[in-house]
Design a protein around this nucleic acid. Structure first.
Lengths: 394, 394
DNA sequence: ATGAAAGCGCTAACAT
DNA sequence: ATGTTAGCGCTTTCAT
């Protein structure tokens, strides 16, 4: 026995985690080889029934649980996929955000879990990065996680190209809601959604003077919605942008946007405010309401994402529904596919969104219509830079 | 070289995951031993500066990322903690629950993450069990996860004693919000919270005829709240339970409870309804409102948990605030502690809750008072009978 | 300061 | 049907 792990009463036993029962222990106690135990554990055939039963007994009795580290090392796969996302705000007592902001990634997570659940062997490792922390922290976190998983789901395009390259060099990566680079991407069709929303404002409600509450510069979602807004303005003569405020997707920044807007109310009063997400729309509505401005009477307001509170708000918020959960599901599916067949061509999957018409845009009280938005192409010519292409299946 | 992993152009290379660069590759390319590379990777001293730099270079160049499986096997620790929870409902399109029910575990998760974030080396593996699935599925999921982690955080006391024993035999376990068994437990002081809430109803608002919307039998939180309610009734002569409905913590089941209540409205009209959580309170309020029953005018209603929608509901809901995030933090702290010092004595930590007075109990419109509940002891002697029964007299 | 080598617990190819 | 054994990639002790 050249390679029997210490299972005698020697000192080596002490260093082993409490209760650590190994395959060898089971094998010895059942009087079979480790190969046989392994076969039993994995329900393989080529084991006599009586043997199987005996081994099974010992397993129960000893409470044996295979060590995944050893399994992984041997099988060259960890049966774990990782999910990375960014926590934007960290204020623990911001009740508003606690009630609202949580939803995005939590839904994503639900989607991923839903996909994973049927396959007992996959597990999900989650890691979040924090916006306010340095890039080096991100790097060390990501390196650590990359060494622990078979594949990675990354929310948003927040990590640098260089880092992404390094990661995807090691494990397959699927980007969720980010700009296509050299990995698979699954994202909502923000462009079409925003286009439909703003077009509704302009064509149905005859709005002409829009104010834009934008999201962070570097967030792909925000960028796409912004570009769509600009494109609609461009293609509708007579419409103008009266101003813009850059928020960070939180209720608070929406309130700030509202205050900024009220500051220029006299001179540059808009007839509609387009917010990059629902949270900010909610914050904006609050500050407008405090100032006695009526919505949609004095001004229309729209959001994006379709979070629950926007639905029950007074007035209810017109917005675009993002299939967040589906996003998680598809991303997960794609990763699992790729893990199974590494040869797959890179692909960007665009998920359709719904336009949700409610009260804040000026539609009649009680309106709550949801209609799928058909895809519209991005106007290439006006986009100076090498536009992210939403290519189908590579 | 007896043990150099295949890094030549041999067939073995093909079976290695794409981009898999090993410590050996780095060592060879830097012209040092694996021991030295390992030292550099872990920033240990006893390496000459020039050597370190050279190795570091090769690491960058090759994009080397240590394989955690191998590290774990060698170091006998995985640097991963697992969190297990139960998904109660699975209806994908139940918008109400999407907006509300998500919050509990998500907050817990946030707490855990918050604790983990400073320690780069820990990662979090999450697994959810599904109520409607069989016990054997739970077992296989839990076994799998137990083999992948150093310690486990388990939400609620939903797993059998036997299974729990087996798990905690292998890795340290901290139960969150469950009944203390033979592991560490971190939980909110449900008993004191429910006692304060019901006492408020009885003493401040002079309620006498209570209806109870209970949670699932086997959920510890529900059980504790139920027992506190009964104890308050018992100690306040003249109070009675007019009826009880057993829900499953969802908005829908709250609505059903409301309908059941309305069914016996004539004969057994209560003056207050105590719901085991906010979701059900919300559902109940909806059905009462549809039936034209005014709250708190005709009847008072209370919830539990303090979820955001209850705060902005019309009327706002009187409830008990659970420190969900803190629960996650403490549980994680405890697990990390135990991992560091396995000898720790088993302990149950009770976290204080807040009584949140709002409108639904009959407090004046606009009320939103939050006060910490001081701990009250569970009355042992009176808990003689095993089964909770309705219609008891105080 | 650096290297050689013995494991860590498990899998799977190859015997028998 | 069952056993033998050579790794999997890394850490760490013990030499040097």
């Amino acid at each position: 026995m050249a390679h029997t792990p210490a299972s005698d009463g020697s000192a080596a036993t002490a260093s082993r985690p409490v209760g650590m029962v190994t395959l060898y222990d089971v094998a010895r106690m059942a009087g079979v080889s480790t190969a046989t135990v392994s076969r039993v554990v994995h329900g393989q055939d080529r084991v006599r029934e009586t043997t199987r039963a005996r081994v099974q007994d010992v397993i129960e009795q000893l409470g044996y649980i295979p060590d995944n580290a050893a399994q992984s090392l041997s099988r060259r796969r960890k049966d774990v996929i990782g999910m990375v996302y960014v926590e934007r705000e960290r204020k623990e007592h911001d009740v508003e955000n606690m009630g609202l902001g949580l939803l995005y990634y939590d839904e994503l997570l639900r989607g991923v879990q839903a996909r994973i659940r049927d396959d007992h062997h996959w597990s999900l490792l989650i890691t979040c990065l924090y916006e306010e922390e340095g890039d080096d922290k991100d790097v060390s976190r990501l390196m650590a996680v990359a060494g622990k998983v078979d594949g990675l789901l990354i929310g948003e395009g927040i990590i640098s190209d260089e880092l992404l390259a390094r990661l995807s060099d090691r494990v397959p990566v699927v980007i969720i809601a980010g700009t296509p680079r050299k990995t698979d991407v699954v994202k909502a069709d923000n462009h079409s959604g925003a286009t439909a929303l703003v077009t509704h404002l302009v064509e149905t409600h005859a709005k002409r003077r829009l104010f834009h509450v934008d999201g962070p510069d570097d967030v792909p979602d925000a960028r796409e919605r912004r570009m769509a807004l600009e494109q609609v303005l461009r293609t509708h003569p007579g419409t103008i942008l009266t101003g813009r405020y850059q928020g960070i997707f939180s209720v608070n920044s929406g309130e700030e946007a509202g205050n900024a807007l009220l500051g220029q109310w006299k001179e540059l009063r808009p007839d509609a405010v387009v917010c990059a997400n629902d949270q900010m729309a909610l914050g904006l509505l609050r500050s407008l309401s405090r100032a006695g401005v009526s919505v949609p009477g004095d001004v229309a307001v729209t959001g994006f994402d379709d979070i629950y509170p926007g639905r029950i708000n007074e007035p209810s918020i017109t917005t675009v529904h993002q299939p967040m959960r589906l996003l998680g599901e598809r991303a997960c599916d794609r990763l699992l596919d790729r893990l199974a067949r590494p040869g797959l061509r890179r692909r960007t999957e665009l998920l359709p969104v719904d336009l949700v018409l409610r009260e804040s845009c000026g539609c009649p009280p009680g309106t709550d219509i949801r209609q799928q938005v058909t895809r519209v192409r991005v106007a290439r010519s006006t986009t100076a830079r090498p536009a992210p292409r939403a290519g189908q299946e590579g």
